[in-house]
Amino acid sequence: MAVDGVHLLEHIQTPAIVVARGQVSFANPAAKTLLGSHIVNQDVRIAIRDPRAVSVILGEGGGNAKIGGLSVGGSVWEIDCKVLGPAERLVTLYDLSVQVSTARAHADFVANASHELRTPLATVLGYVETLMNPKAGGDEVTRERFLNTIRHEALRMQALVSDLMSLSRIEAVKHEVPGERIDMVALARETAGEFRAGGSVAVSANCETAFVSGDRGQLAQVVRNLIDNALKYGRKDGPVQVALEATPTDWLLVAVHDDGDGISPEHLPRLTERFYRADTSRSRAAGGTGLGLSIVKHIVERHRGRFDIASRPGKGTTASMMLPMRQD
């Protein structure tokens, strides 16, 4: 390969190697980082231990192939081979892991959403068909019980569709930094006031006001979701505490605590995954969609903040977010 071409490959971020007569004659820094510096002057079959890749590299006309595990387990790479001469090949490697992971996540999301909608829909259809039978539909007790179930499942579907639309709207603007001046102390007190009929919600703060740059509707949704979760999964009629603390480093901590049964440690890392539930039956019975904490995480990230959940079995749960404060 010409000297100018080698010099150019040295400066590109894409891993690239030159194979001459079956051996790696050149590897740019990106390729050495990926495969190791020792690959230079090594047989390509040792440098890249994948039969499909080797077949393309040592074949007559070049080409490309997808291989897995080149960098870490589960990674996906595309090998692109160009013929430079009778016994010389230029091989470039492209990391497709993010695209593949994103596509898989989208497919899983659609499958999970379809399943979550299909289950209550099947229940509704089954009960409606039963009520259409004159014998069952004519029994007032049976009819009322079935209609209550239909209403519960319809409300569950409505909540799921609402959360799906909310998540879609949040993702559409996730790269736009919100700039409205929001007093989080006032917003927390106002939002907590919506739950007077649902249980005891107390708000405390170490400051009179605490301003952040944000989207008022989304921040209210975060506080509302966290209080709602605390009331649903905390001790029945137990208190829910919302605490706001302005720190000396100009961050605002907003924490929502319940005194419920708590959550086992193995569930904590996955609670913000879409449709993940620590207790599936309890969540569905309480009307949960499995999307609430995922929505919270997306909103907090859009506001350049951090979200965390701390819990111990028997000691309750604390969901908290840290938001950067405004100084104007």
Rank of each mutant, 00 (worst) to 15 (best):
S311M: 14
L252G: 02
A172L: 12
R302G: 09
F109I: 11
I263Y: 01
W251M: 06
T102V: 15
L219V: 09
Y233N: 05
G214T: 07
G234L: 00
H152C: 03
L252T: 01
D258V: 02
K135D: 03
D80H: 04
L117V: 13
G137Q: 01
G234F: 00
D237V: 00
D328I: 00
D259R: 01
I182K: 09
L9V: 02
D237A: 05
V110L: 12
T33E: 14
A30K: 08
H257G: 08
Q221M: 10
V6S: 10
S311D: 14
D80L: 05
I79V: 03
L268W: 10
N133I: 14
G179Y: 05
I39P: 15
G217K: 11
D108L: 09
P120S: 01
G68A: 11
A16P: 01
V24G: 11
H175D: 08
P86R: 10
R49T: 06
R312T: 08
S320D: 06
G137V: 01
S283R: 00
M165F: 02
A188D: 04
S283I: 00
E266S: 05
H106D: 07
A285K: 06
A243H: 10
L90M: 08
H115A: 13
L244V: 03
V44H: 01
L35I: 15
G199C: 08
L90H: 00
A202M: 06
L160H: 00
L226E: 09
R302Y: 07
A31K: 06
A2L: 14
E301D: 15
A107Q: 12
S294P: 13
E273V: 02
G290S: 07
N112W: 11
H115P: 09
R274G: 12
L131A: 04
N206Q: 05
L155I: 10
E144R: 08
H11N: 04
A255W: 10
T130W: 04
L155V: 11
A310G: 13
A188T: 13
T119A: 12
S264E: 05
H11Q: 05
T14K: 15
Y276G: 14
A255P: 12
F195E: 13
E88S: 09
A105P: 01
G73V: 14
R277Y: 06
Q13N: 03
V83I: 12
G292S: 06
I17V: 15
E176R: 03
V6M: 07
S37D: 13
P324E: 11
